[in-house]
Design a protein around this nucleic acid. Structure first.
Lengths: 184, 184
DNA sequence: TCTTTAAATGACATTTGTGACAATAAGGAC
DNA sequence: GTCCTTATTGTCACAAATGTCATTTAAAGA
C-alpha cells in the first residue's frame, strides 16, 4: 500500500507543508499518524479522494504511468481487432468479454484507458461510466465509448462522463489517434 | 502462529526498516528476539494490536482476515434478506446487484466471503468462481454459492472451487452458521 | 559446506511537527 | 477606488523522528 508524507503531498499540490498539516488537522484530508512523534501518512486512495472531492487536478506523479488499455467488448472479433490495433500502437492491452471481468479487471489492472462497447446486452454502460467517475481510486481513468448506436445515446454517454465516443464502424487510425490524445 | 520480520512490517507500513526497529526499541511495537543476533519477530496479533492502538490502516496483505462479505444477487429482496441476516450476525456486508459491480467490488473491497447467486441470467457463476481461484490477489476468498438450482449444478459449483453451497430456500441460521464456519 | 539473502547496527543526512508571526487573498462597506 | 475584516497560507527556527548508507552477521537455501 503506497502512502505519502505531508512533504510529498505539499510537493505534489505545490503548497507549503504547513498547509497540508492544517488540511489534515481540519479533517479535509484523511491521514493517520506514525507512532513516533505523530508524523502524518496519507494513503494513495485517501489522497485521490481528497483531490476528487475538491476538484483539484491530479498531479503528474499520480497519473497512471501505465499505458494500459482495458477493452470491454463481448464480440470476440471486434475485441481482437481493437486489441491488435492498439497493441501495434504500443499500448498494453487487456480484454474483458463480459461485465464481470470488466469490473474485476478495471480494479485489478487500473488501466489508464477504458474502451467501452455500449451494445453489450448484459451491461448497463451508463452505470459503468458513473461507477468509474464516482470511485476516486479509478476516477481518473479515461473512457472511450465505442458503439454502433445513434448520436443521442453517444451524447448521453458523454454526459455521463465519457471522455470521447467513437461510432462503429471506425477507422483504425482514428482509434489510435483518440487513444493517444486521451492519454497525452 | 504467523510472525513477521522487521522487513515485512517495514514493507507493509511503507516505512524504513530502521524505523521499525526503533519502534520496537522504544516499546511501542511488541516483539521478541531470535537467539542468534537478536533478529526481531512480531506476532500477527501483536502487529494488529499495534496498528489498532495507533490508528493505522490495516495493510492489504492482512485484509483477507476481515469479516467482510460481498453479496451478489440481482433480486433486491433476496439480497436485502441475506444482508440483514449477516449484518445482524456481525459481518460487514456489501451488495452487488449485477455482474459488473460484483467484479468491481470483489477487487475493491477484497471480501473474506463471497455469497454468489447462480441464478443470475447475466452472469456465468462458474466463470466467476474460476476467476477468483485463478487470481492470487483474491484466491483465498471463501465462496458460498446460493441457488435454487438442482443438485447437479451445485455439485459442479463445488468442483469449480466453491467452498460451500446453500440451496434456496434456506434457513437464516443455516446461512450464518455456514458463513461463520467458512471464516473460522 | 557454500552461497545467497535478509536483518541489525552506527553514524550521519534529511524530513517533519510545532508555535508564533508575517504575508496574501477574498469579500464587504464606505 | 480605498479601507477594513477575516480566513487562509507562507516563513522561520528548533527539536524530534525518520531515512540513507556501508558494514557485519545471522538466517535461509542449495
Amino acid at each position: 500500500m503506497k502512502t505519502f508524507s505531508t512533504g510529498d503531498i505539499a510537493g505534489m499540490c505545490d503548497v507549503n507543508l504547513r498547509t497540508v498539516i492544517r488540511w489534515i488537522e481540519r479533517g479535509s484530508l484523511k491521514a493517520y499518524k506514525l507512532p513516533g512523534r505523530g508524523n502524518n501518512r496519507v494513503t494513495e486512495d485517501d489522497f485521490r479522494a481528497f483531490l476528487h472531492t475538491h476538484g483539484m487536478p491530479v498531479p503528474t506523479q499520480l497519473k497512471p504511468l501505465s499505458n494500459r488499455v482495458l477493452i470491454v467488448d463481448d464480440e470476440a472479433p471486434m475485441a481482437s481487432a481493437i486489441q491488435r490495433v492498439l497493441r501495434a500502437a504500443g499500448f498494453d492491452t487487456v480484454v474483458a468479454r463480459d461485465s464481470f471481468h470488466a469490473g474485476a479487471r478495471l480494479l485489478q489492472d487500473k488501466p489508464a484507458l477504458l474502451t467501452l462497447d455500449l451494445n453489450m446486452p448484459t451491461m448497463d454502460g451508463s452505470a459503468v461510466i458513473r461507477f468509474v467517475r464516482e470511485n476516486p481510486e479509478i476516477a481518473n481513468t479515461r473512457i472511450l465509448v465505442i458503439s454502433a448506436m445513434g448520436e443521442p445515446l453517444l451524447k448521453k454517454a458523454l454526459l455521463d462522463g465519457a471522455d470521447a465516443v467513437l461510432q462503429k464502424p471506425f477507422d483504425n487510425q482514428e482509434l489510435v489517434l483518440l487513444a493517444e490524445q486521451l492519454l497525452a
